[in-house]
Design a binder for these strands. Structure first.
Lengths: 161, 161
DNA sequence: AAAAATATGTCAGCTATATTGACATATTTT
DNA sequence: AAAATATGTCAATATAGCTGACATATTTTT
């Protein structure tokens, strides 16, 4: 399977010049999928207890990490619409995990902060993930962290966050 | 940003006996999030043209990778319910990207295969992701692939796939 | 001061992807 | 013959995203 370079197909992709890139890296693609699937499943148990989902986790995480970040910042980081964010953020505020403060310079802005409870929850969620990472690093061997860090950073879009 | 390894912070978590695990690895957690977010966004453009989503992508990918895999195999890999799979798989079959063959030993089973068109689409979807990986590897430096591979494998749950 | 732009919030409706539960069919195993 | 298994399907529900429209408060521009 996939041994023949005879692919021809529709040449909608002009890029294919010569012996170009016939080798698609399925192995890493798959490993990345499984790694992320299991990585994100870690906090699910904790979230479920409070009636939260992954969307709440992401919001809580970033607000915790960057205290005082505005709604616009958050939207930019998460790449979702404000309507999508609204419900989740409201629930986190109503539950007492996040609170808002009007911006000191621009009072239209809402600076977001985690409460004490929010910080505690954020850490509880991060812990199993962090443990998983630490174990994977250990199994990988010395120098893993620096290299993995550079790889992951390289996987992001250029202009970004 | 986040250059200091000096994290200390509030010691609300008592767990820290000595210099134990006060350090939650927020940096890798975040990098992993961004990396995966951008990685999965690559094929979206192609998918949208055909009215497909990421669910279709995943199904097509695994069937292409493991020809003859059964529905049960697929459910196990994707970790979704058969009802969730049903619609997506049906659409891929109706569109001519996947076809089914009754199992030769056990005729209750449906062995799944990508058609010629399915293979072409699977490859078109994998290509930008593969390119992204290759570029990230290059930026990371020599030895990256082996190390990243081991790291990602280490991030998966033990008993798995 | 008036108008325009901006940051946020909210209402309403839609879509994609997942869930659970129940039941049907064909086939294999007991 | 009965039970178990692999698959398919119907129905209802949940989550998390989307677009479009409009409201409010505030800041910037004219």
């Amino acid at each position: 399977m996939a041994g023949q370079p005879n692919q021809k197909a529709e040449n909608e992709m002009p890029s294919a010049g010569a012996d170009n890139t016939d080798a698609v890296d399925f192995e890493i693609i798959e490993l990345f999928f499984f790694a992320y699937r299991d990585f994100t499943s870690d906090p699910d148990v904790i979230l479920e207890k409070r009636g939260f989902g992954r969307a709440h986790h992401r919001v809580l995480h970033f607000v915790d990490r960057e205290p005082g970040m505005t709604v616009a910042n958050l939207l930019d980081t998460l790449r979702i619409t404000k309507q999508s964010l609204a419900r989740v953020l409201k629930q986190l505020i109503d539950s007492g995990y996040i609170h808002q403060v009007a911006g000191p310079e621009d009072r239209r802005q809402r600076m977001l902060y985690t409460t004490k409870e929010g910080k505690t929850l954020a850490r509880a969620l991060a812990e199993p993930q962090s443990r998983r990472i630490a174990e994977a690093m250990e199994k990988t061997g010395p120098g893993a962290r620096e290299l993995v860090k550079r790889f992951l950073a390289g996987m992001k879009n250029a202009g970004d966050n």
